[in-house]
Design a protein around this nucleic acid. Sequence first.
DNA 1: CAGTGAATAT
DNA 2: GATATTCACT
Length: 265
Amino acid sequence: MKEDESNWFSKWESQLPKPEELIPINQTLITPDLAIAFDIGNTHNPYNTHHHHQQPPAISTPSSQPNSGEFDSSELAGDEPARTLKRPRLVWTPQLHKRFVDAVAQLGIKHAVPKTIMQLMSVDGLTRENVASHLQKYRLYLKRMQGLSSGGSGGGGFGSGGDPVTDRLFASSPVPPHFLHQSGHPNSDAFLPYMPAAVLQQQHHQQMGVVGHQFQRHFGSPVLSRQQPGQTVHMVGTPVRGSYADDQQPPQEKKALTLFPVGDD
DNA sequence: CAGTGAATAT
DNA sequence: GATATTCACT
């Protein structure tokens, strides 16, 4: 009956350890081997923002690779190679991507296949799959670039009619000109406006003063950590304030359109 | 093995 | 929700 229940319950309850007695067992129960095997370390892992871990592939500065650009492998200085274990999701940092682009550039679009690229990059921990996957996206990116790069409202007019570079990562890296269509034109490299990244903003998303958190991702600049409601925030030291307040249309196509009463779109 | 597109995972 | 990875084909 009832009394039985309450009885065992109280018993059980009274036997519960007090908070003070609850000691952290997370680590002590995990042997070093296990820890490595599961890629878990301390509970307060710097990378453990909340629920996923990642071990940036240690970019071992290849002594035989003339870095055309600067290379900040500060935090990337990894530790133990994850051995034969399932590696964490690789994050393509701009630097990493740069290397990638570099490799592809040097190989030439023709020989730029995952395997070769990977070798040339000589990034420790990078797998062929990683490169293959990335290469694909990169190709798609290039393709799209060509698509909307002709004629348009050119003249430095970005983010107008077209779509403001969908891939931030790619956009943030100097792309060898000759990549754009055609593989044999070592001389047609005339331009290729490299956007200071900061300019790349999304047009949609009218979220109040909140700047895309994507920035944080690639530039590690905590532009906005926490913003109190009502507080206005402008970008730090980034004078990239668009010209057009809310309108996404540069005063340029405004030619002769007095022909018809433009209803409204 | 390389290339794609779709699905899936983080 | 963006991205990276995996999968099934080609």
